[in-house]
């Protein structure tokens, strides 16, 4: 594997929501909405992961003028990491689907 480590699921969801500038609450509701409520992010997890992604420089502070509603956006590096991870996750799905098809035959 080329990337050092796979993203945790929560990091993956949050990065997937930050392809456009969004603030924390918007990220949480977008994830919930787009997965029809199957995936939710708790506020403590959200805050911890935002801090972590900022430190890794996979996202950056896009607009900090309203301290309650700071918006974030993926960096170039963050986008690459996300794309790599999507590839890997696709392989994971394919692997399982092939296995399940095999079981049906």
């Amino acid at each position: 594997m080329k990337t050092s480590e796979q993203l945790t699921d929560s990091m993956f969801y949050i990065m997937a929501a930050l392809t456009k500038p969004r603030h924390g609450y918007a990220i949480m509701s977008l994830i919930e909405e787009r997965t029809k409520g199957a995936i939710t992010i708790g506020p403590a997890s959200m805050y911890t992961i935002i801090k972590k992604l900022l430190k890794q420089e996979w996202i950056y502070l896009y607009d900090g003028s309203n301290p309650r509603r700071k918006t974030y956006l993926l960096t170039e590096k963050g986008k690459e990491v996300l794309e790599e991870d999507v590839k890997l996750r696709k392989l994971m799905i394919e692997l399982a689907e092939m296995g399940l098809r095999e079981a049906e035959e």
Partner: peptide, 19 residues
């Protein structure tokens, strides 16, 4: 548990009240 300065605190507590 989270170490927060004054500015970070606003955003942090906002995440919680929004949830």
């Amino acid at each position: 548990y989270q170490t927060l300065n004054k500015e970070e605190a606003e955003e942090y507590f906002d995440f919680f009240s929004a949830s």
